[in-house]
Amino acid sequence: MALVALTACSEGAARLGLPEAATEQAPNVGNLWLGAWIASFAVGGLVWGLIIWAIIRYRRREGDAPAPRQTTYHLPLELLYTLVPFLIVGVMFFYTIKAQDAMVEQDSEPDVVINVIGQKWSWTFNYMEEGNPDVGTNAHEIGTLERIPDLYLPVNKRVRFNLESADVIHSFWVPSFYFKLDVIPGHSNSFDATPNKLGTYDGKCAELCGEFHSLMLFKVHVVSEEEYEAKVRELAESGNAGERKLEPAKQAVLQTAAPEEQK
């Protein structure tokens, strides 16, 4: 009843704390989140109901014995409270795996590819548009401690994010995507997302990566395809043409030094 009331009050309350979803894939996690709350309310309501019923039904009355009759064991009840938790966990596990598989599923031919580099303590975004006749070149943007970088994405286009780290473990997180993925030195990670709502969204590092971890912020701008292509061309023309890669020497050092750095 409380959940229904919250849903009726506002769309924001119906999300139970989640920000507004901004990708086609996000509802997979949103539905799992809502289902977990429904299950929690149901279990909590049942437990509290049994507690209140037991308090009222078995309260001591005048003339009762000093102590109630003692029972060594109650086999049906013990089976119930042993099997029901397994059932609850099993159902939640099934839907968690189902949501996870949907979130990490990748298309063989994404519409846009963006190579992301996490570094102490900001982000580099490489727009891989050399094969796009409307753009014709790759371009990049490098963030610094003084300047938060902007990430531009075309609406309703499937975007492949390839994640690499230049130093320690970071985590690429856009809360409105309902998904985050670690950025690990020496190990490439990737995922697909299809932004489907125009707007500006916050992005950040979700891994405690060092002294200025809190400054690893970025802004995601979901724009029309024309605006996206114009932005990439603008970056290229302003001196940011080409892909900004990890330096080979730096990569070689990371392969041996990363474990010590991560400690």
Rank of each mutant, 00 (worst) to 15 (best):
M103I: 06
V104E: 08
V104W: 04
V104H: 07
E105Y: 04
Q106L: 05
D107K: 14
D107R: 11
S108V: 04
E109H: 11
E109V: 15
P110Y: 09
V112Y: 03
V113Q: 13
I114G: 05
I114D: 04
I114V: 14
I114A: 07
V116F: 00
I117S: 02
Q119R: 03
Q119E: 10
K120R: 09
W123E: 09
F125W: 04
F125K: 08
E129V: 04
N132W: 02
D134K: 12
V135Q: 01
T137R: 13
N138A: 10
A139P: 01
H140F: 08
I142L: 10
I142H: 06
G143K: 08
G143E: 04
T144M: 00
T144R: 00
L145C: 02
E146Y: 03
R147G: 01
I148F: 03
D150K: 13
L151P: 06
L151N: 06
P154F: 10
N156S: 09
K157H: 14
R158Q: 12
V159R: 11
R160F: 12
R160M: 14
L163P: 09
E164K: 14
S165E: 08
D167I: 02
V168F: 05
V168S: 07
I169K: 13
I169N: 14
I169F: 11
H170I: 01
S171T: 15
F172W: 14
W173M: 13
W173K: 15
V174E: 00
P175A: 00
P175T: 05
S176W: 01
S176P: 03
F177N: 04
F177C: 01
Y178S: 12
Y178Q: 01
K180Y: 10
L181E: 15
D182T: 08
D182A: 15
V183Q: 08
V183A: 10
P185M: 13
N189E: 14
F191M: 07
D192T: 10
D192C: 07
D192H: 15
A193G: 04
A193K: 02
T194N: 08
T194E: 05
T194W: 10
P195Y: 05
Y201C: 11
G203N: 04
K204A: 14
K204W: 13
C205R: 07
